[in-house]
Design a protein around this nucleic acid. Structure first.
Ligand SMILES: [Zn+2]
Ligand SMILES: [Zn+2]
Length: 502
DNA sequence: CCTTTCGGAGGTTAAACTGA
DNA sequence: CAGTTTAACCTCCGAAAGGC
């Protein structure tokens, strides 16, 4: 089964009507859009863990329990959820995510895949530069408060100290007393030990022409009212396909938290204190510390802190403030200037120093048809050097390189976007990052297009040409990105750290 | 129009806890 | 010590800003 998809599917209810991107997974030709992760690609540990998780959450249905699915993918619903097809905007399927993006993709903040060289690098003709990004080891020794334990009976979660938290169901379902109660379609699989009945899943055997989910008996499953057995339990997809075996809030790693409420403090229980809150040090403090490290003052950060996150957003995602702060643990020297109190210091750093490598990449390289990428497991062979592309000696410049220099110049100028404070910081960062940009300079500063289209995008000829040019420019230098790229991140980090030290 | 920026949603998984 | 819970760490989508 698709690794990331598998495990991640626990977090989010895939939509009955699969968004195009995700549907494409069924289409070998478009598999790369949302890569199907070949099990063979994932390491045994992954598989093991996934299996483990699956089994923890729900016992697999007996073989042949379900008739063949008209759709290879699961359909499930949260309680009281208006069926997606009844909504104007179908919910998004869960996003597939690789375990570890390659450095190029990471820098570009673009989708990578499990194979190496990754599809993207391959497409850009820089397979040899495709190396796994380094993953930071998780901090150990961080104390947490007592864990909440699930209360099997009431659908609630009780904390060790007696505090109670609502489960997703409780949170998202008003649970009107007079709401009709439907018996679970038969067959269904009993919830795992200790799991609340409301977590049971309904097998959906298909969809009526109008999109109504059908139970095994062919009868439409009622939605739109509180449904006691709201979760669809999708039968496994056809052989060779990765149909998640289970879904639903309970199966998410965030246990008992609706996917939409994962951000702590959401789900209406803002008062519930995370265990970490008690022991982990104050978020604000951390942020402040971070700010300091970043040469900021807290207030400015605050001001630019996302309107959604911190300040005005009515339905702010409380988790985000937290998420952002998690990067600011003062116990750990920041790698980057966190001019953004927000999360994604990684990406942010990238933005600061690299200006989206992606934009520097020709996509696909000249001469390479922009057609559908092959399925991942077939993407191992590097794209032959594009005919029109001069750099025969070296590969094309990675997306990053081309744009970086040009951009850096810009940014350094103080080109401000919306957040002045940030920008100023960014400016500093840029300045500091000069070394890097210098390294990258010498390449054409021409910015290329890729942006939105990105993975699936079709680069214009101009882009391609530009990239080619860039590649040439760079190619002369030899070295290639791999030298630069591989160490780029580390280098950047070092730079940043140095800055911070000051 | 195109590229870049970056806010932030969402996924993964290892460390902390917990109960047996 | 295995199972559970939590959050640290990470990916990358997609809208908005800015430049040409
Ligand atoms: Zn990649
Ligand atoms: Zn790669």
């Amino acid at each position: 089964m698709a690794s990331s998809q598998e495990s991640s599917s626990q977090n989010h209810p895939p939509a009955p009507a699969q968004p195009l991107e995700y549907q494409q997974q069924n289409d070998p030709q478009q598999a790369a859009a949302y890569p199907y992760i070949d099990p063979s690609v994932m390491n045994s540990q992954q598989q093991q863990q996934q299996q483990q998780q699956q089994q923890q959450q729900h016992p697999p249905p007996p073989p042949g329990a379900y008739p063949p699915q008209p759709y290879g993918y699961p359909l499930m619903f949260y309680p009281s959820f208006t069926p997606p097809y009844a909504q104007s905007t179908p919910p998004k399927a869960k996003r597939a995510q690789v375990r570890n993006a390659c450095t190029n993709c990471q820098k570009a903040c673009k989708r990578c895949d499990e194979v190496r060289p990754c599809t993207r690098c391959t497409k850009y003709g820089i397979p040899n530069e495709c190396v796994d990004s380094e993953r930071k080891k998780r901090k150990a020794g961080i104390k947490r408060g007592p864990y909440k334990r699930k209360a099997p009976d009431d659908g609630g979660v009780s904390s060790a100290d007696g505090a109670r938290t609502l489960t997703p169901q409780a949170t998202h379902t008003p649970a009107p007393p007079q709401t009709p109660v439907y018996p679970p379609p038969h067959p269904y699989y009993p919830p795992p030990p200790g799991q609340h009945p409301s977590h049971q899943m309904i097998p959906i055997y298909g969809l009526a022409p109008n999109g109504t989910p059908l139970a095994m008996d062919g009868q439409p499953i009622q939605f739109g009212t509180t449904y006691p057995y709201p979760f669809a339990y999708m039968a496994p997809g056809p052989p060779g396909h990765s149909a998640p075996m289970h879904h639903g809030p309970e199966s998410t790693p965030m246990h008992g938290v609706h996917p939409d409420s994962r951000r702590s403090g959401d789900a209406g229980d803002n008062d519930v204190k995370r265990p970490g809150d008690a022991t982990n040090g104050d978020d604000d403090d951390e942020e402040a510390a971070d700010d300091q490290a970043a040469g900021h003052n807290a207030s400015s950060d605050q001001s630019h802190s996302s309107p959604i996150n911190g300040n005005s957003h009515p339905t702010s995602h409380p988790h985000h403030p937290h998420q952002s702060q998690e990067h600011m643990n003062n116990s750990q020297p920041p790698y980057y200037p966190y001019s953004h109190p927000g999360q994604h210091m990684y990406e942010y750093a990238q933005h600061q120093h690299q200006h989206h490598p992606s934009s520097g990449y020709p996509y696909p390289p000249p001469g390479v048809p922009a057609a559908q990428p092959p399925p991942i497991h077939m993407q191992l062979q590097p794209v032959p050097a594009p005919p029109s592309s001069p750099p025969s000696s070296s590969q094309q410049q990675p997306p990053s390189a081309a744009t970086k220099s040009a951009k850096k110049a810009k940014t350094a100028k103080g080109k401000g976007k919306t957040h002045d404070g940030d920008m100023s910081m960014e400016g500093q960062g840029e300045a500091a990052g000069t070394g890097d940009s210098a390294k990258r300079s010498g390449k054409s500063g021409k910015a290329k297009k890729m942006g939105a289209a990105d993975e699936g995008g079709e680069p214009t000829q101009a882009d391609v040409d530009a990239d080619a040019a860039a590649a040439v420019a760079k190619g002369a230098g030899g070295g290639g990105v791999d030298a630069v790229d591989g160490s780029e991140v580390a280098q950047d980090r070092e730079d940043d750290e140095d800055e911070l030290m000051d």
